[in-house]
Simulated scan of single mutants.
Amino acid sequence: MTAKVLNIIKILQPVVIMVVVQISLAGVNILSKLASIDGMSSSILVAYRLLFAAASTVPLAFYMDRTIKPRPMLTWTVIGQAFLCGLLGGSLLLNMYMQSLVLTSVTFVAAMSNLLPVITFILAICFRLEKVLLTKAPGSMKIVGTILGIGGAMLMTFYKGIEIKLWSTNIQLYAHESTSTNKQDRVLGTLIALGSCLSFATWLIVQAKLSKIYPNPYSTTAMMNVMGSLQAILFALFADHDWQHWKLGWDIRLVTVSVSGMIGSGLMVALMAWCNRTKGPLFVSIFSPVCLVVVTLVGTLILGDKLYLGSVLGSIVIVLGLYAVVWAKSKEKESIQCIEEKEQGIV
């Protein structure tokens, strides 16, 4: 291959990976919703999911990282950050995410997930990791994007509007309506979904720091899943004392916890960790609309979810806010690079 072709492959590789990740996560969300409709406890589902994730990623980490020499030192700092990753990107995140999924729908939660870059930006300002120069166009656009994201979330929460009917496939995997019509549940589901986005945004920051001192994505994913599974099991035992609820049969519950564990919290998290290390947290977050498109189509066509005008308008506003923040960050990065090149006498 020529150098030009190799360069194109290198550029497209993380893009393709993140598209595959988002499509896979959309499938995991749909399976999780079906399991909750079947009556499976969300805390038990999360505990099993992380157990399957740990069982699959630990041997994968040993196999993939066996040739890495010298291996990074496993210090208390690494273990502590892995524990935080297990909490923020595992047990806490998934328990909140699943609860919001139960209270609303896969389409609604996928749309709310697009607030991730906005919440990451707000969090970075609070910890003084981001600076906003209102006199510059990128700084103003960051504020505009943040306002659009929050406004879109509020629009989805408080405005329903008319029902939008897509073409029918005459396929419905469960008989009753999955989208809650209770406004109180919808508001509570929104708040919990925002909490999950905050947890995810914090995890991206901690995981990025962890990858710098321990740059083995499979090992860090395995440690995160082991820590997260222990935390999730303790929480599930506290939340549900009935051992009958822990039984798995050859049904949708077993399919959900195995697929979501090995694929969703296993392989896909490892791929996200690699993209996060090479491209940064913002790059990982900009692909969330792919998940929204997939779950919207599947949810309305074969899951029986109802699509309302408020959800469509809110999703559009959130995505506009997302890309406003992304544009501002890219322009800001170009400006910084230009200044550095001038200081070094390159231009």
Rank of each mutant, 00 (worst) to 15 (best):
L101Q: 02
A208H: 10
R71E: 05
G314I: 01
M64C: 15
D185Y: 04
A273F: 09
L320M: 14
G314Y: 01
W274C: 09
V325Y: 01
G314F: 04
M262L: 10
G151N: 07
M156E: 03
I44M: 05
A175D: 08
S211Q: 10
M98Q: 09
F235A: 11
H245G: 11
K160D: 04
G145F: 00
N29A: 09
I23A: 00
V255D: 07
P70S: 03
I147Q: 08
S56L: 13
L248M: 12
K131T: 12
D65L: 06
K329W: 02
A54F: 05
G145L: 01
G151C: 02
G299S: 08
K212V: 04
R71L: 04
V19L: 12
T75R: 05
A111L: 14
L292A: 06
A53F: 04
M73L: 10
K212F: 02
P281C: 05
V347H: 11
C291V: 09
S330L: 14
S178I: 15
A193H: 03
M96R: 05
Y323H: 09
E343I: 09
G261M: 03
G139Y: 01
A26K: 00
A111E: 09
Q344P: 06
M40I: 00
I286M: 07
N95K: 11
L166E: 04
G195L: 04
V206M: 03
G266L: 05
F52C: 02
S180V: 06
I192E: 08
L292P: 01
A111H: 09
S180M: 13
Y48W: 15
A47Y: 07
L101C: 03
M224L: 12
K160A: 05
L133R: 13
A273G: 11
